[in-house]
Simulated scan of single mutants.
Amino acid sequence: MKTAAHLLKLKVLQNQHVHSIDPDNMVLDALKVMAEKNVGALAVIENGQVVGVISERDYARKIVLQGRSSAGTPVRDIMSFPVVTVSAQQCIEHCMAIMTDSHLRHLPVVENGELIGLLSMGDLVKEATLEQAELIRQLEHYIRGH
C-alpha cells in the first residue's frame, strides 16, 4: 500500500501546496486564505511547529453557531488541538484508521518536526478507490487467463 509521502507528491504535481496560518491571526484571515486557495482547512503553525488545524467546520461550529466575530477572534481560540500528525512513511490504511478513530477530516504530515503536507479524508479515499480498481482489474485479467 502507498504511503502519505506518495500522496503528498501527487498533490505537489497537481500544484496543491500545504497552506498554514499563525494562531494569533484572526479567524477572518484564515477564512480569506481558505477561500483564496480553495481549501477547507489550514495547518496552524507557531514557532515552526504544527499546533493545530483550523477548518471550515471549526468556523461553522465555534464562530457562527456561537455568535462570535470572525474578525475579532484569533485562530487559536477555535482551532482543533491537540493536533494528531503522521510521518510521511505511514501507509494510507494507517492514516485512514487514525482519521476515522479520531474523527478527523485533515491530517498533517510531519517529518523531523516540520510540516510537509496536509492530507484530507478525500485524498485518502480517492487513492484507496484507485488501488481497489487496479486490484480488480488485475484479478479480472488473471481470471480470464490473459
Rank of each mutant, 00 (worst) to 15 (best):
L10E: 15
L118K: 04
D58W: 01
I98E: 05
I54M: 14
K11C: 05
Q16D: 01
R137H: 12
K126P: 00
I45T: 04
S70Y: 11
M121R: 05
L124Q: 05
S55R: 06
G48I: 06
N112K: 13
M34G: 00
V51E: 13
H94L: 07
S120C: 05
K62P: 04
D24P: 00
L135G: 00
A60R: 14
H146T: 09
L31P: 00
R76E: 14
R105I: 02
T100V: 05
E93D: 14
D22R: 11
L7N: 00
I136L: 12
Q16F: 05
D101V: 10
F81H: 15
I54W: 09
H103D: 14
S70R: 13
A4F: 04
Y59A: 01
R137C: 00
T85I: 14
C91I: 09
T85N: 09
M99G: 03
A60W: 09
T100P: 01
K9C: 02
S80Y: 03
M1F: 07
A88E: 15
R105D: 07
M96F: 07
G122A: 09
A30L: 03
T3Q: 12
Q138V: 06
S69T: 03
Y59L: 13
C95S: 11
Q90T: 11
G117L: 01
S70N: 10
L124N: 03
I78D: 04
I116C: 06
P82T: 12
L124K: 05
K62N: 13
T85K: 05
D29I: 01
